[in-house]
Structures are given as C-alpha cells and as structure tokens.
Design a protein around this nucleic acid. Sequence first.
DNA 1: TATTGTTATACTCTATAACTATA
DNA 2: TATAGTTATAGAGTATAACAATA
Lengths: 161, 161
Amino acid sequence: MLSKKKQTVNPGKFKSKIEGINYGLLDSLVGYSIRRGQISFYDDFFKAVNEPSITPLRFSTLVIIGANPGLRQVQISDLFGVARPGATSLIDYWEKKGCVERRVGDKDRRSYGIYLTKKGSEDLENLQNIVKAHEDHMTRNLSNSERETLMDLLKKIYSEA
Amino acid sequence: MLSKKKQTVNPGKFKSKIEGINYGLLDSLVGYSIRRGQISFYDDFFKAVNEPSITPLRFSTLVIIGANPGLRQVQISDLFGVARPGATSLIDYWEKKGCVERRVGDKDRRSYGIYLTKKGSEDLENLQNIVKAHEDHMTRNLSNSERETLMDLLKKIYSEA
DNA sequence: TATTGTTATACTCTATAACTATA
DNA sequence: TATAGTTATAGAGTATAACAATA
C-alpha cells in the first residue's frame, strides 16, 4: 500500500499568484489550476460554514446519509475512499452531535443502517443553504452556461480516471 | 488561527461515482466537481511519478526553485501557504537528495538563496517530462480548446478568491 | 525590534492490525 | 472463512512556540 498523502494548506495563506514569481511549468498545468481552484473553494468553505470541525468531508458525509437513508458504514468508506475506521470516526462525529443514529440491521446484524435524526435533517438543511451560498459566491464571475461547461469539462477528467 | 485542515484520501480508493448511490446536492456543486477532479489528478500523479515521497507540493517546490534561482525560503513559504518550518522541511528534502543547495546571501546573511544543483536540473527535467505526460493522459478526452476553456474558467474562480 | 531560518513539540487525520460479532 | 464495525497504534504532515543569528 502506498504511504499516506496529505494535501494540507495553511488555511487562507495560499496565494494562487504572487507578483514577481515565475511559476514555470506550473502555470500551464491543468492539474495545478485545479489545485488552485480547490484550495480557493476549501478556504471559502470554512469561512462560510464558520465551524472549523465541519470539514468538507464531514459535510459530504451528512449529505450522502440524507440522500441515502440506511446507508452502511462500509459504503461510506467506499464512497469517499477512506478506510473503515475512518468511516467509524465520521459517523461518530455526527452521532455525538445528535445528527445521525445507527440502527441495527434487520437482515444483517453485523452492520448498522445510518439515518438522519430530526436535528440532523435540520442541520443538514441549514448547512446545505450555507454551502449553496458559498458556491454562488465562488462562481460569481461565471455565467450559468460557463458553470455548466466547467462541470462538464471536469467530468471528462474524473469520470475516466 | 484556524486549526489544520487535511484533505487526505486513501490513494486510488476514491471513486467519483458509485452505482446506486444518490449523491444529492454534491452532484450539483462545482466545489465537489473540482474535488473529484483534483483527487483524480492526485492519484494519477503518484502513479506517473512512481516515487511516493515526491508529492505534488515537493514537485512544485522544485519547479519554482528552477524557475526562480536564488529564491529564499520565506518566499516558498508564502508561495505555497506553508509555515516557515514547512519550507525548511521542503528544502531539506531536496537538499538531502542533492538536488538543491542553500547559498548564504551576500546582502542579507539571515537568509539563503536556494539554487538547483546539476543533479537537480536533470531530475527536474525528467520529472517535468513525466508530469507533462501525466497531464496529457489526464486531459486525453479534452480538445486543446476545451483544455484552454477549463483553465480560463478555473482562473475566474481562484484569481478573485 | 523585526525578520529568516531552525528545532522541539503538539495536534490532526487516517492507515494498518488485531479484535469481536455476526454471516 | 469472510465481512462489518471497533479499538489501539503508528506515521505523515504541518502549525505553533521558542530560539539564534542577523538586520
């Protein structure tokens, strides 16, 4: 197995361009452009959500649980590419906040079905509204058609990777 | 200061789409699309470079040093949004490999100028060729004009963040 | 006093391995 | 035996703080 690969950036400290610096090959790389965009989104996500413990991954987990009631942890692990203990920890986080509950499976008693609680539904609703506003902010210089184009072009990259 | 935010994914394990899963809001978010694209690039970078210790950040560091001879560590720290000890560690990595050298500054003896060695130039040349091939592979389903469009649209996001 | 770089330390995230319980 | 989930452990990466040298 490959060793772990972290992608941390001191939040808010990364500048996509600095005057007087020659970026060499980096400026012509799609990969580096995507990285720049990703860091911008990432930073703004935390500003918008304003709760450092809610990471994009934790947010995505809550969205997926909301959209797929009864999901099992092993599926979350597959979905986001985290090992099983990582899925345990993701669910623990939201369970401690009272947003999700583990229900013992009827058919297979090794696994749980994960469900939103009432509080979870409300929190998710609020979070989704915040994230939608953050999206609007981040794409404020794009027309609707440009936004569609961007998502289509990205799909051409990740859907065949 | 905000706490650290990691963006790790078990390399190669993340799947951008899984059958039978409802992605809910995530499918309509530009931010999640960029994340999917970024993970694809990240995974393929490691496959292409085939040396786990060479991360995209370390590669970018070598590129920037090559394009800006005499760069100081504090500038690398600013450039990539890492704290100063992070810059020390980045330079240590390449110095141990014999690819860069620290030269004591003539004007300001607090700082070093960082320069590629002969080996560093050769390794950088090789790495850049590998990364260019990786880029071609990742964008193989995009025409040249689509590639340009993608980079332009991303720039509209990160240049005003 | 402020800045550059280093070292020591602490913290987060997450993979691996070992375990329990079910199948 | 294989799988779902948990717990314990270890490692990578990087921020903060304290320090030395220089400005």
